[in-house]
Amino acid sequence: MDQLVVGVLARPSSPAGVATAAHVAHKIPPGDGPYARAKHYQLVEKDLDASIAWFWKAINSGDKVDSALKDMAVVMKQRGYLTEAIDAIKSLRHLRPKQSQDSLDNILLDLYKASGRTMEEIELLKQKLRKIYLGEAFHGKTTKRARSHGRKIHVSVQQETSRVLGNLAWAYMQQGNFMAAEVVYRKAQMIDPDANKACNLALCLIEQRRLADAEAVLADVLARHDQSQHGDKIVAKVEELMARINGGVEGRGGGGGDDEMVELLDEVVRQWAAPYRKSNRRLPVFEEITPVCREQMAAC
């Protein structure tokens, strides 16, 4: 494949001006190195398999390894090479600097989710929580810069924690462990309330056949709902869940067990608390998490 790709690039069919314009339009780096060629095939030629071959060459030759590994994994996911992409990240991530590992974790989470590897997804999400509260993800700061839909934004430690908790709860739901999902969703809501996560919390309660509790959660969503922010999607979701409650549809039970929940609470909350004890900046919510969650478990 390498010889074929080199041959194609050695005989460009477009004038130099057109090629330059394409590079500018697609923000392809200048030059004729392996990484530039990989991006050309990815973005201009739309030949994803050829781009993967050139990303491999870029990694092996040390050409923009930091970007090449991430971009190659994204393209492999597009092509459906999920297992290969996971293996590539795991075996090559040591080549990327420490500050770039978080973006690789996010790609890994997407790959785990797409391939149904829920146990590995859950473990990685727990690791992300530990990093956040050990100060490693935010480098001791209370906010970090991130990208959302192409825009640079500032994300607070509370927002990031709530987001990761929401993803962890969703992963538990995919396992059918609705008790664990409920506890984690409640933690997320205590830190940074969100209508979508509240609806998922209600679904967890429905699956545990706690319909009155679910109805109360949904009523609170409607009372706090801002249509200008979410449009009608939240209202439609609430109506769908209320119809299920009124129809008396039985859930599947809680799933999991007390040992799982005790381990989750004791381990994660202990990790969260550690850095705040040292700096005397422990967030009030951490003081509340354990007793609230244990009350929820006792009520099940």
Score class of each variant (00 low, 15 high):
145 R>E: 14
286 F>H: 02
269 V>H: 10
18 V>D: 08
219 A>N: 04
143 T>W: 15
99 Q>N: 08
67 S>R: 07
39 K>F: 01
160 E>P: 14
182 E>S: 09
9 L>I: 08
61 S>L: 03
6 V>A: 09
54 W>C: 05
138 F>I: 15
271 Q>S: 06
185 Y>G: 07
242 M>T: 05
50 A>D: 02
36 A>N: 00
221 V>F: 06
264 L>E: 13
113 K>W: 14
239 E>W: 04
192 D>K: 12
155 V>H: 14
191 I>G: 09
279 S>N: 04
176 G>F: 06
105 D>S: 06
47 D>I: 03
153 I>G: 12
148 S>I: 15
270 R>W: 13
107 I>H: 09
255 G>Q: 04
93 R>M: 05
116 G>L: 07
178 F>E: 01
47 D>V: 04
71 D>V: 09
3 Q>W: 14
144 K>R: 15
190 M>W: 15
147 R>D: 04
97 P>K: 00
67 S>I: 03
269 V>Q: 02
182 E>C: 06
83 T>W: 10
120 E>F: 15
249 V>Y: 06
195 A>T: 06
14 S>W: 15
236 A>G: 00
59 I>L: 08
95 L>E: 05
128 K>S: 09
124 L>V: 13
280 N>I: 12
221 V>G: 00
265 L>M: 11
288 E>V: 01
19 A>Y: 10
214 A>Q: 02
232 D>T: 02
165 L>M: 09
134 L>K: 07
206 I>L: 10
61 S>G: 02
288 E>M: 04
228 S>E: 01
171 A>D: 07
3 Q>M: 11
215 E>A: 02
9 L>Q: 02
152 K>M: 09
65 V>Y: 13
280 N>F: 15
188 A>L: 07
37 R>K: 01
293 C>S: 12
19 A>H: 05
145 R>K: 14
40 H>Y: 11
287 E>Y: 05
82 L>M: 11
177 N>Q: 08
128 K>F: 07
156 S>K: 02
205 L>H: 03
133 Y>G: 12
214 A>N: 02
59 I>Y: 11
12 P>N: 01
89 I>H: 13
28 I>K: 01
26 H>I: 06
22 A>Q: 03
13 S>G: 06
282 R>P: 00
10 A>P: 03
104 L>N: 05
34 P>R: 00
53 A>W: 10
225 H>W: 07
31 G>N: 00
86 I>A: 06
46 K>P: 06
283 L>M: 07
37 R>T: 00
36 A>K: 00
270 R>F: 14
107 I>L: 07
278 K>L: 04
271 Q>L: 08
298 A>R: 08
5 V>C: 04
177 N>I: 14
29 P>H: 02
199 C>T: 14
75 V>Q: 04
124 L>N: 06
93 R>S: 08
212 A>H: 01
96 R>A: 07
101 Q>W: 13
